[in-house]
């Protein structure tokens, strides 16, 4: 979908939390139920992150499986295809337990002294 917009949102979020420090690593959590194309995201992040504290940071995407929960039988199971029905109880009380995440989990930053020691890149 709109990976360019998502990249902008990610870079803004990361730079806000970096507060001027250089970012060396970014960890995202992306649920399976999110319509994100990782390669495209990576491509755009390189462009959007240029000339910002994110430039050159490594990116890690933690895949979160799509797990459903049936509130009737309290069963939880992972799905590989989109079918939102409990095999025992039917569709009545099925909800998504995980898989809709789309967040910046953490970043690694250099502190100011460390940044000062870093050779020009």
């Amino acid at each position: 979908m709109h990976e360019f917009d998502l990249s902008n949102a990610i870079v803004q979020t990361v730079n806000k939390h970096a507060a001027g420090r250089r970012v060396t690593h970014i960890t995202l959590r992306v649920g399976r139920l999110r319509q994100v194309v990782k390669d495209t995201l990576l491509f755009y992040l390189a462009i959007v992150g240029k000339d910002t504290p994110c430039e050159g940071a490594t990116l890690e995407i933690v895949d979160v499986p799509a797990v459903l929960r049936c509130n009737t039988c309290e069963n939880e199971w992972e799905i590989e295809i989109p079918a939102f029905i409990c095999g025992t109880c039917g569709p009545g009380a099925v909800e998504v337990a995980t898989g809709e995440e789309f967040m910046v989990e953490s970043i690694e930053v250099e502190d100011e002294e460390d940044a000062a020691c870093t050779a020009p890149r």
Partner: peptide, 29 residues
């Protein structure tokens, strides 16, 4: 990470240096 310092040997500043992990947990939307 190649740039992680060994604080016992080189750093006498009294402050932690090297990359700091910052928890963000912010929804991208």
């Amino acid at each position: 990470h190649a740039h992680r310092h060994d604080h016992d040997l080189g750093d006498h500043s009294g402050y932690d240096t090297g990359p700091q992990r910052v928890s963000v947990l912010e929804h991208i939307f």
